[in-house]
Simulated assay, not measured.
Amino acid sequence: MNEIPVEPKRIVAEEYLGSLIALDAIPVGAPGLTLENMYFKEALTSVTDTGTYGQMSPENIIALEPDLIISGMADSYDTLSRIAPTIIVPYGNLKDAHEELTYFGELLGKEQEAKDWLVQYDERIAAAKAKVEASIPADATFSILERADKSIRAYGDNFGRGGQPVYQAFGFKPPADVAEEIMDKQWAEISNEVLHEYAGDYLIVTDNVLTLQDYKDDPIWGSLPAVKNNHIYVWKEERSWYYDPIAVLSQTEELAAWLTA
């Protein structure tokens, strides 16, 4: 059952939607959360919602008669592989846009499309990086943070929220004392009491509620050097949460524009 077709025509993709779109391999189905991705929403008008992200409905998938299913969840293999040939690529196995596009280009018989897309990607990333390097000291430290109702988290270079642009594309580092923890585990839950230890010279903060002014007015956040120096960028999760190659490219150019404004 699990012999992968050479050029699949009806793909259901629980994960890696951005790479499929970059390769012009629009799937027939994907879970609702991934369909909300603002970076390529307009390309998905013909894609069927297969259910909750991480819990796709077998009934919905069967109805789509797929010839290939792509997932990141190993524990879904038994269920999915009974429906159609299934590929499991656990999140984190592919470390960046190059690994991801190259892998799916080979899988789908679209090697040339992958190469062509990555050439443009590299050119735009390099242009953004050059702009930033001309404006920001190379030894400046950066923190990727997310604030929710009752928690603050710091993130590494492969967990969305701006980590890929800042740490991978631009090559900046987190504050030295916490760098190993953040890059090794990819995230850390932190409290207000230790926030200053995790706060670098620049802060990229995901927050669906508070504004930039709220951070400046807050007694704890407002005391951080980055906030005093206006080195804080606040964006909503609809822009920061995604980590596919298309989103990372847009985020890199967005953050470069802020850093060089």
Rank of each mutant, 00 (worst) to 15 (best):
E193V: 11
E193I: 12
E193C: 12
E193Y: 09
V194S: 13
L195V: 12
L195S: 13
H196L: 15
E197Y: 15
Y198C: 10
Y198V: 08
A199Q: 08
A199S: 15
A199V: 10
G200F: 11
D201R: 06
Y202D: 07
Y202N: 08
L203P: 07
L203H: 07
L203I: 12
I204Q: 04
I204S: 06
I204A: 09
I204H: 04
V205K: 02
V205H: 03
V205Q: 03
T206F: 04
T206W: 08
T206A: 12
D207F: 11
D207Y: 11
N208L: 02
N208R: 03
N208T: 03
V209P: 02
V209C: 01
L210R: 15
L210K: 15
L210I: 11
L210H: 14
T211E: 13
T211H: 10
T211A: 07
T211D: 13
L212I: 12
L212A: 12
L212P: 06
L212F: 06
L212D: 14
L212H: 11
L212R: 09
Q213G: 05
D214S: 15
D214H: 13
Y215I: 14
Y215D: 13
Y215A: 13
K216V: 10
K216Y: 10
K216P: 11
D217C: 06
D218Q: 10
D218F: 08
P219G: 02
I220A: 04
I220F: 04
W221P: 09
W221S: 05
W221A: 06
W221K: 05
G222F: 06
G222V: 05
S223D: 12
S223Y: 11
S223I: 03
L224H: 09
L224R: 09
A226N: 06
V227L: 05
V227D: 12
V227M: 05
K228H: 08
K228I: 14
K228N: 10
N229K: 14
N229E: 14
N230I: 05
N230Q: 12
N230V: 04
H231D: 04
H231R: 08
H231Y: 02
I232L: 14
I232K: 02
I232N: 03
Y233L: 07
Y233Q: 02
Y233D: 01
V234Y: 04
W235I: 00
W235D: 02
W235Y: 02
W235A: 01
K236D: 03
K236Y: 00
K236C: 00
K236E: 02
K236A: 03
K236T: 03
K236S: 04
K236W: 00
K236M: 01
E237G: 00
E237P: 02
E237S: 03
E238W: 00
E238N: 06
E238P: 00
R239K: 11
R239L: 05
R239T: 00
R239Y: 05
R239P: 00
S240N: 07
S240V: 01
S240E: 03
S240Y: 01
W241K: 00
W241I: 01
W241G: 00
W241A: 00
W241P: 00
Y242P: 01
Y242D: 01
Y243G: 03
Y243S: 10
D244V: 01
D244S: 07
P245K: 05
P245T: 06
I246Q: 09
A247Y: 07
A247E: 05
V248N: 12
V248Q: 05
V248C: 08
V248S: 07
V248W: 03
L249F: 08
L249M: 13
S250N: 15
S250V: 11
S250G: 14
S250K: 15
